[in-house]
Write a protein that binds this DNA or RNA. Structure first.
Lengths: 260, 260
DNA sequence: TTTATTTTTGCAAGTTTATGAAAGAATTTG
DNA sequence: CAAATTCTTTCATAAACTTGCAAAAATAAA
């Protein structure tokens, strides 16, 4: 098989370290990096793409910036919201198509799901259940019936998570549940926080229909805690940049794929 | 594809930082920024547009102003103008005196209790349980442990109310609970919404110590639903305008009165 | 070790993105 | 309400990016 783009297995840890060191904490241009590493610019780009998928750094036009402060911390809320905003917008639009007036829906945390929340004004008489304070703020004056899961507040994602969410979660009947994720692989979705994973699983087990919203950057990434198997989901909505590999995996699991 | 306006993927973080720094906290004109950043005015305009979309700054004719953190939050949960702001402020200050580091407190809805929430930055390691989204927004980045009651959202008061709040409420142990009210008479407190009353009673029955924050305007008023007997409360905090009649009634019920 | 297979790399062609200049629309100001 | 300034839109261009291919390197198999 011809390898290009992102099918590469791995990057030598040696060069990975070199790149990250070269980046320091500022921005480096591609040509600078190519000179430092003694490789072509094309190779640098491929390396950066790989490292971006792992969440180690953030590519920008002309170069890359290191993303972590200390170690792999999760991005702050508003930083995340501005990444791949275009893709997220399109994914949200496609997801909106799945919602009809009168539905009862669940909205998980995450910026893609938040983009969907903003579009719900165009529907009537929804019952919206959510664990996201941002989504709640967005829907406060929407006229929809709004129910918040209780629980412990997690500042990083601005969601309510953990065991305290279960009594309420168990009391509710949810039609369509929309989830975001940090990472998505053949084995399932993963997220950084155990409490977050707990609540995802809880709702995942109770919704009639589970829908995953994940932009193409999420594919191939894993995070700390497993939050659900791939076949827990009925539909996956992603953008056109998604690798064809994903299509195969979904087909095998009989999951419907929507490309926005 | 021709790129203009806002199709750009992202702005290098480098220049983003420069712009925000250049803005400082005053207004900068486009030409000033263009000179500082060594780019054309057209580019500055595009950058500003992008940053405005992210909510980082506010464009004005001729330049841009930075949006500060406080304003950002208010965009989400803008507060209605409050009556008797002075009294409420003093009551909140007095109530703060009842809270010690490490306490577990409950915050009810209402503007007086919200004023208290704003003061909690001065304490450490609190566990704050609340049914108020306004209070939650206020405490989001406080570092305190924050737990939200789940339940149905009531837009008017921006609180979570009704039977769905009971499973979580029953699972929690609460030290000091602070309540607001609409009306306060010798027979007890009352409020406009049955769901609101339900949740008040629920917590009232579970807190070790129940504290009522009520400015003098509340006395003598009744509202639709009874939300608690007077002797359910241990402490009442009010302002100096409170009628002496109240003192007598409280004394009879052996309730401590704090005049702010 | 040699051979077969997979993975990585550099180059080049084609595409996308960022930027500055310029023309026309909108706003402010006198 | 007219002049001046600022804004938006369009266009051209250069720089950056992606993708396909073939050669080189690394890995696995014989």
């Amino acid at each position: 098989m011809i390898s290009h783009g992102n099918n590469r297995k791995l990057l030598t840890p040696e060069r990975e370290a070199l790149i990250l060191e070269a980046l320091g904490n500022g921005v480096r241009t591609i040509s600078e990096l190519a000179a430092t590493l003694q490789v072509s610019e094309a190779t640098v780009r491929r390396d950066l793409r790989t490292l971006e998928q792992r969440g180690e750094l953030q590519r920008v036009h002309g170069g890359a910036v290191r993303v972590d402060e200390g170690t792999k911390r999760e991005l702050l809320f508003h930083e995340k919201a501005t990444l791949r905003a275009d893709e997220k917008e399109r994914i949200a639009e496609a997801a909106l198509g799945l919602i009809e007036n009168g539905d009862s829906v669940y909205l998980d945390g995450g910026s893609t799901v938040l983009a969907l929340a903003r579009k719900l004004e165009s529907r009537r008489e929804l019952t919206v259940v959510t664990n996201s304070l941002m989504a709640a703020a967005e829907l406060m004056e929407s006229g929809h019936k709004l129910i918040l899961l209780g629980g412990e507040f997690r500042p990083l994602s601005r969601t309510l998570v953990g065991p305290l969410t279960s009594p309420i979660g168990e009391a509710l009947h949810i039609g369509k549940a929309f989830f975001g994720t940090i990472g998505l692989t053949a084995s399932g979705v993963s997220t950084t926080d155990p409490g977050e994973a707990f609540t995802k699983k809880l709702i995942l087990g109770r919704a009639e229909q589970a829908i995953l919203l994940a932009d193409s950057g999420k594919f191939g990434r894993t995070s700390l805690v497993e939050a659900g198997k791939l076949d827990d989901f009925d539909i996956v909505v992603t953008d056109s940049g998604a690798p064809s590999e994903l299509q195969k995996i979904l087909k095998k699991n009989k999951i419907k794929l929507i490309m926005a």
